[in-house]
């Protein structure tokens, strides 16, 4: 089953007018693998994430995804209905700001249950039970199931967003700075939780982060981006312990100095 990648990205480029968003990026992602994309802000990592996840349309290149039937499909030529269905069942997207990924005025239970209802679940009791299960898995008390995320702390909102994404058992999750904007102690707990879930569920994930510690803790492999280009790519431990590019060396050393 793991003899083929889940996602094949070839020669992806995106331009904003004359400015480069990202250019000539190619990589494969394997089932159960976590890939970190690191770089400073403006390096093109979020553009790349958005292009791969079809939230942005790339100007050049292709993204192919292996569907559950084993066939690779080019995402750019897929019908919108099918792509949107894929995005809300087989994929997840965790935004840096949970408010972008949650319905803030809808209860936590309904936030988690929405994807189930979207694919046709029509039993209130069962939807609620599944939502409850997921809330416990992300360490949110069952007594909060009818509360709106407005009343949640930043860390709780982020965990709720994760539960909302995972309820349909996706195979691939995109995360954009999932721990950004959180306190250090909250970050640590959330990272632990994400690592556990990714392992338990065998999820593949692409995580964008500027924080090398996040990459170290979560990812198997990492890509370093600068000026829209991937300048270094390898196993996470190798890149962090033995960076080859001068820029990566600078990034790593600047962390160590802190």
């Amino acid at each position: 089953m793991n003899s083929q990648p889940l996602l094949k990205v070839s020669d992806l480029s995106k331009f904003y007018g004359g400015r480069i968003g990202c250019t000539k990026v190619s990589f494969d992602l394997w089932p159960g693998e976590v890939l970190a994309i690191v770089g400073e802000s403006g390096s093109g990592k979020t553009t790349l994430l958005n292009c791969v996840s079809t939230r942005l349309t790339a100007d050049v290149g292709s993204v192919e995804y292996r569907m559950r039937d084993g066939q690779f499909r080019n995402l750019a030529t897929m019908a919108e209905a099918e792509r949107r269905f894929l995005m809300r069942t087989d994929w997840g997207f965790v935004h840096q700001n949970p408010a972008d990924g949650l319905r803030m005025t809808v209860s936590a239970g309904a936030n988690v249950g929405e994807r189930l209802m979207a694919i046709g679940d029509r039993h209130y009791g069962q939807i609620r039970e599944t939502a409850g299960d997921w809330l416990s898995r992300v360490e949110i008390g069952l007594d909060r199931i009818d509360d709106q995320p407005r009343a949640f702390s930043g860390g709780m909102r982020q965990r709720l967003q994760i539960a909302r994404n995972l309820v349909t058992a996706p195979r691939l999750v995109f995360m954009d700075e999932p721990t950004g904007g959180l306190d250090v102690s909250v970050q640590a707990r959330l990272l632990d939780l994400i690592r556990g879930l990714v392992q338990d569920l065998g999820l593949a994930a692409i995580v964008v982060t500027h924080d090398l510690a996040v990459a170290r803790l979560l990812s198997h492999r990492m890509m370093v981006m600068k000026d829209g280009q991937v300048i270094e790519h390898g196993l996470t431990d190798r890149v962090l312990d033995d960076p080859r590019e001068p820029y990566t060396q600078l990034l790593v050393s600047s962390i160590l100095q802190v």
Binding site: E80, V106, S107, A110, G113, E114, M117, A118
Partner: peptide, 19 residues
Amino acid sequence: HALEEYGLMHVKLYEDIAR
């Protein structure tokens, strides 16, 4: 409507029952 994405409609009914 075009994509028959009606999950949101049931979210509203879910909220009614929860509340």
